[in-house]
Simulated assay, not measured.
Amino acid sequence: MKFFIRTFFKTLRLVLGPVMLLRERLTHPVGLVRSPALQAQVDQQCGNLALYQFTTCPFCIKVRQEMRRLSLNIERRDAQHDVKNREDLGRQGGEVKVPCLKITDASGSSQWLYESGAIIGYLQGRFATV
């Protein structure tokens, strides 16, 4: 029974994955326009952020869309196919769960923020008014 359930969900991901990625490309939001100096400042702040994600995860797509809307150049790390990223997420973040935003402060300590709603709230609070 377990085999059939796994096979069903694997097939479902194979069928729906490309559809979800196409929808993401077609519904590309318009990015926030900032002055070049202000955008450079935002890009510098984004250097301390990394998004651990799966390509076809609907919650990851939601976060990526918000990143585009806010014109944020945040590094994306594939935790689905890259074993090192998956291990880092589990070892340092505590859970292999996506999306996850790694926030590194000036002292080098990291905070791991899970849940798409929390990540979007953090990004909006930090960058929407900048």
Rank of each mutant, 00 (worst) to 15 (best):
Q124S: 06
E95M: 12
Q41C: 02
C60A: 11
V83Q: 15
D105I: 00
I103L: 09
F127E: 01
F4W: 08
I103R: 12
L101S: 00
L101R: 01
L113Q: 05
V130A: 11
K102L: 13
W112L: 01
V63L: 06
I120L: 03
G94D: 05
E66A: 10
Q65R: 14
L113F: 01
R13Q: 12
G90H: 06
L51I: 13
D105K: 08
G125T: 05
N85R: 08
A79D: 03
Q45I: 00
I103E: 07
Q41M: 04
R23G: 00
K10A: 06
F59S: 02
S109D: 09
C57V: 05
R25F: 12
R34E: 02
F9D: 14
E115Y: 00
A128W: 10
Q45L: 14
T129K: 14
S35D: 15
V30W: 09
T56G: 01
T11I: 14
Q111D: 07
P18Y: 01
E75K: 15
S35G: 15
S71Q: 12
G17E: 02
I74E: 06
P99A: 01
Y114A: 01
K102I: 09
D43P: 08
L113I: 03
R76W: 14
Q124I: 02
L22N: 06
G121P: 00
L72S: 05
L12M: 15
T27A: 05
Q44F: 11
N48L: 04
N48D: 01
T129Q: 14
M20G: 05
C57L: 09
I61E: 04
D78E: 12
L51Y: 12
Y122P: 00
L14D: 15
Q111N: 09
F8C: 09
L21H: 00
V15E: 04
M67L: 06
P99G: 06
L14N: 15
T129H: 14
Y52Q: 10
R34K: 08
K102A: 09
V98W: 01
A40W: 11
L49I: 02
Q45R: 14
A50M: 05
Q39D: 08
V15R: 12
R86C: 11
P18W: 04
Q111E: 08
G31I: 12
M67G: 02
D82C: 14
R13G: 03
Q45S: 11
F3H: 09
L12I: 06
R126I: 06
G47H: 07
L89W: 08
P58C: 12
K84I: 12
C100R: 01
G31D: 10
T55A: 03
T11Q: 11
L49C: 00
I5C: 09
Q53L: 13
T129Y: 13
R6H: 11
D105P: 04
L113T: 00
D78I: 11
L113S: 07
R68S: 13
I103H: 05
M1T: 02
L72H: 03
V96A: 03
E66Y: 10
L21M: 06
A37Y: 11
A50I: 07
R69N: 08
T104P: 04
M20P: 02
G108W: 04
D82H: 14
V42H: 05
G125W: 09
L22E: 00
L32K: 15
K97A: 04
A40I: 07
V63T: 13
G17N: 05
P18S: 01
V83I: 14
R69L: 01
D105G: 08
V96L: 05
C100W: 02
R68C: 12
L89A: 08
H28T: 15
